[in-house]
Nucleic acid binder design. Structure first.
Lengths: 223, 223
DNA sequence: TATGGATCCATA
DNA sequence: TATGGATCCATA
């Protein structure tokens, strides 16, 4: 997978300038770039069919399967339960809300603080939530860096319709840059397929979440 | 419809403290509260069935139909094309991106500036985008106030699964409060049904967007 | 019930 | 193609 661009929404303070972050970032980028399709091919070659119509185009699982596996082997925790939100809200039944950890795709505690990594393979509106969540982590000092991996339209056009893409997020960049965060990194990593070929199989689209979950588990094991 | 709470994410500067805003806000709240179901009943009485399962629960159109009609009669523009985003991005085909105005449910230009109003009847992740959009409008000084109408879980539980609700948004409040905005208002208006009754008809759930659009047009005409 | 997600739709 | 939306799903 090609990393075609990185967008630094926030890049402030001592950690952002540290050698430790330079190394961590390099390792994360390396893992991201090793996403592959077909599995074992060493490149990401997509079947070039628009994902606009129902049943057409490609699913999203291989984008994150191998990179997550690699991070795991490097000491990262997958599906990390992240207590980023506050604890004040309570439901009518007396249960706490906003306290349940939303899982982060991969996270690792370093001496300098927590670094979190998320792949954006849901609806573009979900990208807003993902970025807001990492930004909140920085505001609340629960992490020192957040990395969101997001396709550009050249890739997204072949995936499920309305999947998160950098073009639709770009107009909002001034919003996150406006945050009063003194310390930390918030980075978007923009990805694109290595190539396109009608000889490459279509990536199965899960009819439902179960199919996707099973496929992710299978691909992580296979990677 | 009951307004059970208002959440002020941002409330700063001279406009926020002005009598003009007090009047505008009062009129907007009045319109919001006149949402009704069944149409003509003068109250919002919902059929109490969970929207969790496919084909169950209630659709969302009447929540905004009559309030929008009332605002329109009061001089507001519906489906207002709002050029809030920047103009820098360009697609591979040379077309500008992020320049296309996303429609705002209702907006009106006052002497003091533009006021925008949105109902949140999409997925909760879409609520993040809606709030980000209005916050960006304040950061970029394209508006002086933004109002988002959002159900609480007592109402949302009877609507389509995963619809925007205040409980899931609440943990992110510190994020938007953290913005460096000197002037303007960003307010969430939390709504809840007046009552529940199995004698009230279920609100039709559009199988698709067309059904919803047609219903909205019909209800606005009927209101 | 709570949360993140995946998929498909309508209109401009 | 571009944009906001509506709906349903899986797991904890």
């Amino acid at each position: 997978m090609k990393i075609v661009e990185t967008v630094m929404l926030l890049n402030r303070g001592s950690f952002a300038a540290s050698g430790a972050w330079t190394t961590i970032r390099s390792n994360v980028h390396s893992a991201i770039a090793q996403a592959e399709w077909p599995v074992g091919s060493g490149a990401f070659t997509i079947y070039p069919e628009s994902g606009k119509k129902s049943g057409h185009g490609n699913g999203v699982v291989p984008i994150k399967a191998k990179p997550m596996k690699l991070l795991q082997e490097d000491g990262w925790t997958l599906e990390y339960p992240w207590e980023v939100t506050t604890k004040t809200a309570v439901t009518t039944r007396g249960r706490a809300k906003g306290t349940r950890p939303g899982d982060i795709d991969a996270a690792r505690q370093f001496d300098e603080g927590l670094v979190v990594v998320e792949w954006e393979t849901g609806n573009v509106s979900s990208s807003h939530r993902a970025i807001n969540k990492m930004a909140l982590g920085l505001v609340a000092k629960k992490c020192v860096a957040g990395v969101l991996i997001i396709p550009n339209m050249k890739l997204a056009r072949y995936l499920t319709d309305r999947i998160g893409n950098i073009e639709e997020i770009r107009p909002y960049i001034p919003l996150w840059e406006n945050l009063s965060v003194a310390e930390g990194v918030l980075e978007l990593v923009v990805i694109e397929q290595d190539g396109e070929s009608t000889d490459s199989p279509r990536i199965p689209k899960g009819k439902d979440g179960r199919a996707q979950e099973a496929m992710l588990a299978a691909l992580i094991a296979k990677s």
